[in-house]
Amino acid sequence: MDSEHGKNARFGMVIDLDRCDGCGACMIACAVENNVPPGHASATERTGITWMRVAAVESGQEYPAADVAFVPMFCQQCENETPCISVCPQNAVEIDPATGIVGQIPQRCLGCRYCMTACPYHARYFNWRDPAWPEGMDRQLNPDVSPRMRGVAEKCNFCHGRLHAAKAKAAAKGSREIDPADYVPACVESCFQNAIVFGDLNDHESEVAKLARGADTFRFLSRLGSEPKVYFHSTRPWVKEMAESTLTRSKKENGHG
């Protein structure tokens, strides 16, 4: 759909789970880019803020046949009946029709956490305490992203600060169309394995659109019908099976025998 204000895009990603080696660079690049503070000493897997989180999923086989898939999990940018949007009582979450990006506005958020219970991907994080940086590190914040205050939810927005910069660069040249090379999210940029391909799904010729249509590409919880724009790719049969299964006994529960 085109308008006088430029083409509408649907930004999305395809992540190759066979390429991801779980190095964690994307998580750190994301935190640095988006001014996510270092976790408090008491932060845990369940209270810390990681817009981008890589889960190590085990195949369940024994040593030495055991296999691991590293699954980067973050906001899946659902397109249809986006679970977090309809529940927010005060419109702090919305989907941008021009980019398809699901945005979360911390300034509007009252911290009811309803969106967090609604998100099946657990991609939303709450600021349980005020953000704190060690003295000096607070002067190293990314000037393009505002830090969030205590008591609000936050999540991945495909590095919106970088989209702003790309748009401003295009605007300075008198154009409304951004150069795809100018808009690359931090996780994609930091991934040395090129496991993440990012781009406009509306552009059928783009690499991301081709990969999304390709074989061995799937989405997590696709049967919920929320049409996420983040796709995954793997040729390993057990990974595909895992992705489509429900309530598989987890790594920890497996541990109990």
Binding site: A92, E94, D96, I101, V145, S146, H164
Partner: peptide
Amino acid sequence: HGRRDGCIDCHK
């Protein structure tokens, strides 16, 4: 001016 923007177009 008929512009339809999302919140995050003007918030960072």
